[in-house]
Simulated assay, not measured.
Amino acid sequence: MKIAGKVFEPLSMSAVDTDAHIGRRLKEIRKLAGLSQAALAVRLNIGQAALSRMENRRDILVSSLRDYLAALGASLRVDAHFEDKAAIVSSLREADFYFEPVDENQLVLPIIGDDLFPPHRDVVFSIKPEYCNKIVDGSKTIELRRRFPMSVPAGTTALIYATSPTRALLGIAVIGQIYRQAPSDIWDAFSSQTCIRRKDFDTYFGDLACGYAIELKHARRLRRPLGLTELRNRFSFEPPQSFLYATPQMREALQYECADIPH
């Protein structure tokens, strides 16, 4: 914690009380900051009696807590701590979110504070040219994958890379719902939206118990396709076998040069 340019070690629960006592912890922080109760009451524009009651409460509104700390020259930050085995940690890793673990056994996500929740990243699909054309003309609205992270949120931008012989990034879409089902159920539900023959569908999924059907919405062509040579030179891009996550630099280039992409 930093107050008025000074860094203080966070108070442990044992340093104050075995029971959570927010007011008493605030009082200790105030003393560390070198302020009297009367001086802080003036900063908060409240009476000293009201401040005294606050410092004796075990439960305080977040807005009051924020104002109290702001008067000390500090900002409020609330983090959610997850152990490494928590499901959310696996989901973030699977989706390739940017996040920094505190250590190998803990993940901290900001709830209140200046730090942002880890942003999701655009997905690049490698797709045969004939299917790319069907996506950008709106006739193919379901993309199939043998594996895909369910944690990718709806609204994620999907970048469409056409494989050989085209070898260029030429389209963009928005990911809608993601369905994880038995291939037979995917076929029954979405065959008309996949633009694929049943024989090719069965060959692709083989004997997998579950596959993925990814809804693609608002598909359109880029104003200017980006060929593989340019992608390599500018973004160190290598075509994925199935999909990969786009770099922020690629997203910026697309936003300013090739298409209006979602923010």
Score class of each variant (00 low, 15 high):
Ala158Tyr: 02
Ala158Trp: 03
Ala158Ile: 01
Ala158Met: 07
Leu159Arg: 02
Leu159Thr: 01
Leu159Met: 00
Leu159Gln: 00
Leu159His: 00
Ile160Thr: 01
Ile160Ser: 04
Tyr161Ile: 07
Tyr161Cys: 01
Tyr161Ala: 05
Ala162His: 00
Ala162Gln: 04
Thr163Asp: 06
Thr163His: 01
Ser164Met: 07
Ser164Gln: 01
Ser164Arg: 05
Pro165Gln: 10
Pro165Lys: 04
Pro165Ile: 02
Pro165Ser: 08
Thr166Ala: 04
Thr166Asn: 02
Arg167Lys: 15
Ala168Pro: 00
Leu169Lys: 05
Leu169Ala: 03
Gly171Val: 06
Ile172Asp: 01
Ala173Gln: 03
Ala173Tyr: 00
Ala173Cys: 09
Val174Phe: 04
Val174Cys: 04
Ile175Glu: 03
Ile175Tyr: 08
Gly176Tyr: 03
Gly176Ala: 05
Gln177Cys: 06
Gln177Val: 07
Gln177Arg: 14
Ile178Ala: 02
Tyr179Met: 04
Tyr179Trp: 06
Tyr179Pro: 00
Gln181Arg: 13
Gln181Gly: 02
Gln181Asp: 07
Gln181Tyr: 02
Pro183Val: 13
Pro183Arg: 08
Pro183Ser: 13
Ser184Gly: 12
Ser184Thr: 10
Ser184Met: 11
Asp185Gly: 09
Asp185Ser: 10
Asp185Met: 14
Ile186Glu: 08
Ile186Trp: 03
Ile186Thr: 14
Ile186Met: 11
Trp187Pro: 02
Trp187Asp: 10
Asp188Met: 13
Ala189Tyr: 07
Ala189Trp: 06
Ser191Tyr: 07
Ser191Phe: 11
Ser192Leu: 10
Gln193Pro: 06
Gln193Trp: 10
Thr194Gln: 12
Thr194Cys: 14
Cys195Glu: 10
Cys195Ala: 11
Cys195Trp: 11
Ile196Ala: 12
Ile196Val: 15
Arg197Ala: 11
Arg197Ser: 12
Arg197Ile: 08
Arg197Cys: 08
Arg197Met: 13
Arg198Val: 14
Arg198Pro: 01
Arg198Cys: 02
Arg198Trp: 04
Lys199Tyr: 10
Asp200His: 14
Phe201Pro: 03
Phe201Ile: 12
Asp202Asn: 07
Asp202Pro: 06
Asp202His: 12
Asp202Arg: 15
Thr203His: 12
Thr203Cys: 12
Thr203Gly: 00
Tyr204His: 10
Tyr204Pro: 02
Phe205Asp: 14
Phe205His: 13
Phe205Ala: 14
Phe205Ile: 08
Gly206Gln: 09
Gly206Ile: 11
Asp207Arg: 13
Asp207Tyr: 15
Asp207Glu: 15
Asp207His: 11
Leu208Ala: 12
Leu208Trp: 11
Leu208Lys: 10
Ala209Asn: 14
Ala209Arg: 15
Cys210Thr: 15
Cys210Trp: 15
Gly211Glu: 11
Tyr212Arg: 09
Ala213His: 08
Ala213Asp: 08
Ala213Phe: 07
Ile214Val: 15
Ile214Met: 11
Glu215Arg: 06
Glu215Thr: 05
Leu216Ile: 09
Leu216Arg: 11
Leu216Met: 14
